[in-house]
Amino acid sequence: MTSVGDRAEGWRRLAMSVLLGLLYVFLYAPILFVIYASFSEDIVWPFPPSFTTDAYAELFDNSLYSDALKNSLIIGLGSGILSTLFATAGVIGVLRFPSRRRALILIAFLAPLFVAELLIGISSLAFNARLLGLPGNLFSAIAANAVEGTAFAFLIVLAQLVRYDWQMDDAAMVFGASPLRCFWEVTLPAIWPSLFGAFLISFILAFNNLEISFYNLGAIPTLPSVAWGSLRFGLGPELFALAALTNGLVFAVFALMYVLMRTGIVKFGYRGV
């Protein structure tokens, strides 16, 4: 539908699309270059191209990185599962049982978005070490990461579930399903894509987190903290290889998210987002 006055409108639209294109270039040029350079012999000036997988060999041979990978995976999985559980229960509670306390609950779940990661990191370090007498460990890192993860997961699940029709659950209960049975047989099959999406996001967030994990773990390495250590000595080929792989993981996650959200949209009969 074109409205009258459309020449100016056309220019505005063109200008906006150019800005969008430039933003993609700004965001993706470094990423694409890193991936390209990670396969090159000379990472600084990889022209003319001469391909090699030396950088990856270097990365995989380094035992520090494999320990770090294991720890990052543990933190990511733990925080992802914890975040998804808390967030899903919270969203269902808020949507199904409206109450005057709803606003407070929303604030509690979303508050972590407005606290800097550095602050989460140092405060849980200080709290655990001085008041609980616990040295940094993977569990405290999982918990601290799950704070932020819960907020992200809450937003994702909320955005999808506001369109869920709870009358389906009412119908199931009229026909004799207990609340748990009803969740298992009616709700979950319909909403699992958004839950899985929330898990993926909170997983990748914790997996790649530097500041929260760093202060909670001390000497225990994670991929970002090892990368941080490495970057202090300048860009190395193995850092490029790691960046390329991590970006690959993130894009796999987002591709999956995209498919899930499309599925979710189909399920809820909603065309937007």
């Binding site: 539908m1 074109t2 409205s3 009258v4 006055g5 459309d6």
Partner: peptide, 24 residues
């Protein structure tokens, strides 16, 4: 209303041709 431009033809309001005039 001017929210849509006709493919052909003219729109006149009080004798004034408004076919290409924006709605506002």
């Amino acid at each position: 209303a001017g929210l849509e431009r006709p493919t052909t033809g003219r729109v006149l309001v009080r004798g004034q041709d408004v076919t290409t005039m924006p709605p506002y």
